[in-house]
Simulated scan of single mutants.
Amino acid sequence: MENTNIRQTPHCAGCGIALQSDNQQSPGYVPMASIDKDDTICQRCFRIKHYNEASSITVDQDEFLKLLGSIASTESLVVHIVDLLDFEGSLISGLQRFVGNNPVLLVVNKIDLLPRVTNWNRMRNWVQKQARENGLKVADVVLCSAKRNIGFDRVVEAVTTMRGKRDVYVVGATNVGKSTLINRLISDYSDLKRELTVSRYPGTTLDAVHIPLDDGHSIIDTPGIVYSSRLTELVSRKDLGAIMPDKPLKPMTYQLNAAQSLFFGALARFDFVEGDRQSFTAFVSSGLTIHRTKLERADELYAEHKGTLLTPPEVADLDKLPAWTRHRLRIPSGKSQDIFISGLGWIQANGTSGATVDVHAPRGVKVMLRDCILGSGN
C-alpha cells in the first residue's frame, strides 16, 4: 500500500534552498524547532533580511546551468532580467540554447539610475540592438525600475499577454533585481503573503523557488548566474555599496589631453594614450572617487596611494582582487563609443576625431567598446 504520509523536504521561503538542521555552516540551515513552520526562512536569509548580513555560502555553478537547461523541455515564458547599468555584464548571451523555443521577455531593470533626461525610445532601440548582437532573440523588451515602481505596470501587462497558460521562469545574473521584481509580480498575481529574500549581495537565491499562482501555474525564480567578469562579483561586500549606485548617476565630464589618466578608486584606471584634446564623461557611482593625473605619474601614484587616497578597496582588501591587466582600445573617428567596464560603469568618449585608450582593471573583468548608450539626444 502506498504511503501517503511521506514527509516532503521543506524549503526556505526566501531563497528556495532545502532546509536542514544538521550543519550550521551549510546552505539551508535552520534550528530544528523552526523547520516545520510555514514560510520558514533559513538562517542566511534571516540575517540578510534583518541585519543586512551575508554569508559566503554558494552553490555549484554547474547546478545553475543544469537548471537553466531544463527550461527547454517545458512550455514556459522566460523573463530575462538584466541590469541596465551593467548590460553586457548581466546579459546571458547563451540563453537561447537553454530555453529552446520558449519566448523570451527581456526586462531591463534599474532605469531609475540613469539621468532623468534619458531618451527612452532611443534606449529601447539600443537594448534591442545590443541583445541581437549578443545572439539573444527576444519577443519584447520592457524598461523598468522594480525598486521605484517605474514601468512595472508594463512588465505585468507583458507577462500577462505573453504567458497565456504557461509557467513563468525568471532568469538573470546575480544582483540584477530579480527577487525585487518577483516580489512585485507575486503581489499582482497571487494572494500569497510570502516574500523572496532581497539584498544587494550577489547570489541571494540559492535554488529554484516555485511560487504558485492563482490559476494553477507558477512563477519560478532561478538562482542568479555568477559571472566573475563583473567587478561586483570580485570586490568585498563592504565595497559593493560604493560601486553600486542607489540614486541617479551624475555624469562627470573631464577635458583631457593625451597622456592623462583617471583613477576610479583603486579598482580601475583609464589612460587617454593618443588623440586630440577631447572630453570623456564617466558614468559611475557617486560613491567612487575619481582622481586625475598625468600618465607618466600614474604608476607611481598607484604604488604610493592604493588603498589610502585611492579607495576602494582599502589596503586590507587589495590582495583579494586579481592583478590588473591592460586593455588597449581604439575608438574610431566619427563614431560615438562607450568604454564599458563590467560592474563599474562606463566612460563615454565625446570626441569625433578618434582616440587610443588603455583600461587597467582586475584580470578577468569584461572591458569593451560598445555603441554609445546615451547619445547627444539624451
Rank of each mutant, 00 (worst) to 15 (best):
F98H: 15
D207K: 05
D214Q: 12
G164P: 07
D191W: 07
T180M: 02
R116Y: 08
A173H: 06
L106M: 13
G172F: 01
T118H: 09
S93E: 12
K129L: 14
D188V: 03
R124K: 13
R154E: 05
L192C: 04
D215V: 10
R116E: 14
L143K: 05
G135D: 06
R122C: 13
L196S: 11
G151W: 01
D191G: 15
G172Y: 05
L77W: 05
I150K: 00
G100S: 11
L85V: 06
V79A: 14
G164H: 11
A146I: 06
V117P: 01
G94C: 13
H210V: 15
L196E: 13
L77M: 10
V117I: 05
A146S: 11
N175I: 01
L114Q: 13
D83Q: 08
V176T: 07
T160A: 14
W120M: 12
L192R: 06
L136W: 00
N183F: 02
V156P: 01
H210R: 13
H217E: 03
I150D: 02
W120I: 08
S199I: 01
L181P: 03
K165H: 02
E88Q: 14
K129E: 14
R122I: 08
G89V: 09
L114F: 14
V168W: 04
D83C: 12
L105G: 12
Y169V: 13
V108G: 10
V141P: 07
V159D: 00
F98N: 15
K147W: 00
V171T: 14
W126G: 12
V78K: 00
H217K: 09
I182K: 01
G172I: 02
L185T: 11
A131I: 09
S179L: 04
N119T: 04
M162H: 06
T197K: 02
L85R: 02
H210W: 11
P115K: 01
D153L: 07
Q96M: 15
Y201T: 10
E133G: 06
L95A: 12
S199C: 05
V198F: 03
V141S: 04
E195Y: 08
L206C: 12
I211W: 02
W120V: 12
T160S: 15
I150N: 02
M162E: 09
G177Y: 03
